Every structure is written in C-alpha cells, then in structure tokens.
Amino acid sequence: MMKWRNLALATAGLAVLAGCTSNPYTGEREAGKAGIYGGIGAVTGAVIGAATSSKKDRGKGALIGAAVGGAAGGGYGYYVDTQEAKLRQTLQGTGVQVQRNGDDLKLIMPGNITFASNSADISSSFYPTLNSLVTVFKEFDKNGVDIVGHTDS
C-alpha cells in the first residue's frame, strides 16, 4: 500500500514540475495550469480511487484514480493555458490588456479605445477587436464570461 501511495505522490509531483514554465508575456517563472491541475487531479483521483476500492485493491484503485484524475485535471489546465495564449495573441496591438490572476483572465479595455467621451456608442474602430473576442469566446466556450463596465459622468 505504501509503495502505491508513494508512486501516486511522485507522479503528482512530476506533473506539477512538468507544468513549470516561463510566461512569454511577462518573463516570470510560473507553473502552467496544465501541470498544476494535473497534479491536483492525480492526488484527488488517487485518494478517491483508494477510498472506493476494496482493501486488497486499494493500490490499484489509487493508481487508476491518479491516472484518470491527472489526465482530466491536466486537460482542463491545458484548455485554460491555451485560451490565455489565444487571447493574448488576438489582442496584441489593440490596446486591450490581458491580466491573469490565478484561474481568472481579465481583459482591461481602456475607455479611450472603446467609447467616445459622453457617448454610449461603441467606437467604430473597436468593432474589429470585439469581433475577434467573439471568435475566441466561441472557440473556448466551456468557460463563463462576466462583463463589467463603468461610465463617465
């Protein structure tokens, strides 16, 4: 039993380390979500697999759970990483900034490129940017989008 648990923990640790990358946009060293989510999924899957297996099959259950949980978590992490990269690529040069805070992606759209002062009409020059955002949101349609805005007086 101890051997299987150590194997599952080592697998999870390797998954987390494999996800460590350097952010090409900020230059900071960070862990990619694929590695982090894969590690969390592997550990969670191992615990669930061991807990739901019979006493003699706990090691096997932990190993199967770690594999399934790691694959599912890593897959979602890869999805989030890919979405962030696509947004950054699409919005490059538009004046819109992409900020990542944990699992949240925030798009900062300055008022001078979105609306004219004292106007509720979207600037005609901003429509291409909005259309490219729609394309990315359609491609990555598994995540929710919250829209928050502020007005001038």
Rank of each mutant, 00 (worst) to 15 (best):
residue 116 A to W: 07
residue 140 F to D: 09
residue 22 S to H: 11
residue 27 G to H: 11
residue 109 M to T: 10
residue 140 F to L: 11
residue 11 T to R: 00
residue 152 D to N: 14
residue 91 L to G: 01
residue 92 Q to E: 07
residue 14 L to R: 04
residue 118 N to Q: 13
residue 5 R to V: 10
residue 12 A to V: 06
residue 8 A to F: 01
residue 121 D to S: 14
residue 56 K to D: 08
residue 32 G to C: 08
residue 28 E to S: 12
residue 21 T to H: 07
residue 55 K to C: 00
residue 11 T to Y: 06
residue 130 L to R: 04
residue 142 K to I: 03
residue 94 T to W: 03
residue 78 Y to M: 11
residue 30 E to H: 08
residue 33 K to T: 09
residue 33 K to W: 14
residue 55 K to A: 08
residue 58 R to D: 01
residue 114 T to Y: 03
residue 147 I to R: 15
residue 95 G to T: 06
residue 141 D to M: 05
residue 133 L to E: 07
residue 114 T to C: 08
residue 18 A to F: 10
residue 133 L to N: 06
residue 57 D to T: 05
residue 9 L to C: 10
residue 46 A to S: 09
residue 50 A to V: 03
residue 50 A to Q: 01
residue 14 L to V: 12
residue 23 N to I: 12
residue 86 K to Y: 11
residue 89 Q to R: 12
residue 129 T to L: 05
residue 113 I to W: 08
residue 15 A to H: 01
residue 99 Q to S: 09
residue 57 D to S: 07
residue 19 G to N: 04
residue 78 Y to H: 10
residue 38 G to F: 00
residue 100 R to E: 08
residue 129 T to R: 00
residue 49 G to A: 04
residue 89 Q to S: 11
residue 46 A to W: 00
residue 132 S to T: 13
residue 84 E to C: 09
residue 101 N to I: 10
residue 130 L to C: 08
residue 49 G to H: 04
residue 38 G to Q: 02
residue 61 G to I: 02
residue 127 Y to H: 14
residue 93 G to A: 06
residue 106 K to Y: 11
residue 107 L to H: 11
residue 55 K to Q: 05
residue 64 I to H: 02
residue 111 G to C: 13
residue 82 T to G: 10
residue 35 G to H: 04
residue 150 H to R: 08
residue 13 G to M: 04
residue 153 S to I: 07
residue 78 Y to E: 03
residue 53 S to T: 04
residue 84 E to D: 14
residue 152 D to C: 11
residue 84 E to V: 15
residue 91 L to P: 00
residue 87 L to C: 09
residue 77 G to A: 06
residue 129 T to V: 10
residue 21 T to C: 05
residue 88 R to Q: 06
residue 40 I to R: 01
residue 31 A to N: 09
residue 137 F to D: 09
residue 1 M to P: 02
residue 82 T to N: 14
residue 39 G to R: 01
residue 22 S to P: 01
residue 100 R to H: 10
residue 115 F to D: 05
residue 92 Q to L: 07
residue 75 G to F: 07
residue 112 N to Q: 15
residue 5 R to T: 06
residue 41 G to A: 05
residue 44 T to H: 05
residue 85 A to T: 11
residue 125 S to G: 14
residue 130 L to M: 14
residue 125 S to V: 03
residue 45 G to F: 02
residue 86 K to F: 08
residue 98 V to A: 03
residue 5 R to F: 06
residue 61 G to Q: 01
residue 3 K to H: 05
residue 136 V to D: 05
residue 92 Q to R: 04
residue 53 S to L: 01
residue 64 I to G: 01
residue 110 P to S: 15
residue 59 G to F: 02
residue 78 Y to F: 13
residue 151 T to A: 11
residue 143 N to A: 15
residue 122 I to V: 15
residue 35 G to A: 09
residue 151 T to I: 13
residue 63 L to C: 09
residue 88 R to P: 02
residue 37 Y to T: 00
residue 119 S to R: 09
residue 37 Y to V: 00
residue 25 Y to L: 05
residue 122 I to F: 13
residue 22 S to K: 11
residue 111 G to M: 11
residue 143 N to E: 15
residue 128 P to R: 07
residue 68 V to F: 15
residue 96 V to H: 01
residue 27 G to C: 09
residue 99 Q to L: 09
residue 135 T to D: 07
residue 59 G to A: 06
residue 53 S to R: 05
residue 105 L to A: 13
residue 110 P to E: 12
residue 131 N to F: 13
residue 74 G to P: 01
residue 88 R to Y: 07
residue 68 V to N: 07
residue 68 V to L: 15
residue 153 S to T: 10
residue 36 I to H: 00
residue 135 T to S: 13
residue 30 E to K: 15
residue 72 A to F: 07
residue 58 R to I: 04
residue 30 E to Y: 13
